[in-house]
Amino acid sequence: MLVLGIETSCDETAAAVVDDDGTIRSDIVLSQLEDHAPYGGVVPEIAARAHVDHLDSIIARAMTEAGVGYRDLDAVAATAGPGLIGGVMVGLMTGKAIAAASDRPFIAVNHLEGHALTVRLTHQAAFPYLLLLISGGHCQLLEVTGVGAYHRFGTTIDDAIGEAFDKTAKLLGLGFPGGPALEAAAKAGNPKAFALPRPLAGTETCDFSFSGLKTAVLHAVRGAGPLTDTVRADVAASFQAAVADVLADRVGRAMQRYAARHGDGRTLVVAGGVAANRTLGDRLATVAAAHDFALMVPPPRLCTDNAVMIAWAGLERLQLGLTDNLAAPPRARWPLDMEAAAAGAKA
């Protein structure tokens, strides 16, 4: 079974063809990094314009590399949200058009489900598992019991984790995107140089908060005098250590909760762009081992935004008969967990 996946919800224009045996037949990602870098962040209208200019040629490349024609596909899957709505619409409309013209089923994929299911492609992970989803737009802990079956343990009550990295990097003048730049700067720094808070650590919930940490970083930078490379490195290292502590605490809490509901063979899956951070990854590995959880993290290429995960989520849904009609709407907000989705539908 072959599915074409299309991803345009943020600043990567991507297309991929994936086989149900797990073979990635093609995986094309066009980054718009250079278009947005001068602005210090992703500009939605610039992103949408770039997607419509490039998407069809990216898809053509993905099909050529996969060596298949449109009639060889079993379905077409496109991200329908959540994300920047202008870009989402470009991928969604292109996907619907290809599905209609090739007379194939269409699947409107939740971008977060793409991240959530990638580990089933890369590690053949079985349900259930505990998922830590950490990216530029999200920070949540979910119990995953099946395709479309998510129960939220906790989420951020303010900024996403990647947002906190980007804002701190901006404050330190490290450029955009901030995550990788901050991680690199932190290597030379002392993680104990600045005493930063560990928001919500030790509390009963599994929620996160990063806005107070961001403010504390601002005060630390102001009080540190001239912004030398040493100060930059120390602030970066101290910030990253605080985030690692918070993640360890919150994930530890979630593991206890998860362990009370599930038996042996427990797994922690980490997905999303921030999962590529080594320091955080090492720390999560320690926490997982301490709680007797296996740790599974897809390779960095499949943690950041890509279309392989959209094609794979499409395959999983197709196999369960979960296809969508061609009136499927674009959704700027689309929570993955059933509770929040139901609350949103009522609102």
Binding site: V52, L55, D56, I59, A60, Y70, M89, V90, G91, M93, T94, G95, K96, A97, I98, A100, A101, S102
Partner: peptide
Amino acid sequence: LATARGLALT
């Protein structure tokens, strides 16, 4: 345009 170009591609 996205729809037209997607149809034409296919």
